[in-house]
Amino acid sequence: MPALPASLRAPSLRRRMACWLYEGTLMFGVVVLPGLIFGILTNTRHALDNRHALQLLLFAVLALYFGYFWVKGQTLPMKTWHIRVVDRQGQPLRWPRALLRYLLAWVWFLPPLAAMAPFKLSGGEVTVLMGGWIVVWALLSRFQRGQQFWHDVWAGTRLIDVQPDLSRRRV
């Protein structure tokens, strides 16, 4: 198999996972305002009231957030870690592919959530199950050509390393 051009090489797993954790931290800021507005407009008094409608709203908000930034090439954490998302040919994503990638990225969470649904698991058990699945899913990328995550392979996208050109920096 020929080596990938330097411009299409995947960032290290460590950088991709650091970006993933940073993204997860920022998600609080992305969902808190829509969640607050939803709670006020629906006069929600208990966390389980209107739960499914709120989940659907936040799912859509996150789809718009990720879709918008992936079409532009990078979210803030991706810029920080010098990672860009492109299609298989190295071109920027269009909305349909960005939304497909968003839907397929839920594979990081849906299998363990489905596995714990029929059982009454403690918080610690849920943490171990979710954490274990995430570790396994991340490590599986090491066996994929180009070391891409499986949702990227299925969506026809790839994460590439976009290290800045340090020779252009002012001293």
Rank of each mutant, 00 (worst) to 15 (best):
P2D: 13
L4A: 13
A6M: 05
A6F: 03
L8Y: 09
A10K: 00
A10V: 02
P11M: 06
L13P: 04
R14C: 04
R14Y: 10
R15T: 08
R15W: 12
R16I: 11
R16D: 08
M17T: 15
W20T: 04
W20Y: 15
Y22F: 15
Y22M: 09
G24W: 12
T25D: 03
T25Y: 10
M27D: 01
G29S: 10
G29C: 11
P34L: 11
L36S: 08
I37E: 01
G39Y: 01
T42V: 12
N43F: 05
T44D: 03
R45N: 10
H46L: 13
N50G: 07
N50H: 15
R51I: 11
H52F: 14
H52D: 14
L54R: 12
L56A: 15
L57T: 03
L57S: 03
L58F: 06
L58A: 06
L58Q: 10
V61S: 06
L62A: 13
A63E: 08
L64E: 05
Y65D: 06
G67K: 05
F69T: 01
W70S: 04
V71L: 04
G73L: 10
T75D: 06
T75W: 04
L76C: 01
M78I: 01
K79D: 08
K79N: 09
H82L: 03
H82G: 00
H82D: 13
I83W: 02
I83K: 04
R84F: 05
R84K: 15
D87K: 02
Q91H: 13
P92H: 08
L93H: 03
R94H: 14
W95R: 09
P96Q: 06
P96K: 06
R97N: 01
L99V: 07
L99G: 01
L100R: 05
R101A: 09
L103K: 00
L103D: 00
L103P: 00
L103F: 13
L104I: 05
A105P: 02
A105I: 04
L110T: 14
L110I: 15
P111H: 08
P112H: 06
L113K: 02
A115N: 02
A115C: 12
M116V: 12
L121T: 05
S122C: 02
G123S: 08
G124V: 07
E125N: 04
T127Q: 03
L129M: 13
M130H: 03
I134G: 01
I134V: 12
W137S: 01
L139Y: 09
L140I: 06
F143H: 10
G146V: 11
G146D: 07
Q148S: 05
Q148A: 07
Q148F: 09
F149C: 12
W150D: 02
D152T: 05
V153N: 00
A155F: 11
G156K: 05
G156F: 07
G156Y: 07
T157L: 11
R158G: 00
L159N: 12
D161Q: 15
V162P: 04
Q163H: 08
Q163S: 15
D165W: 08
L166R: 14
L166W: 12
S167L: 11
S167H: 11
S167Q: 13
S167G: 03
R169W: 14
R169Y: 14
V171T: 09
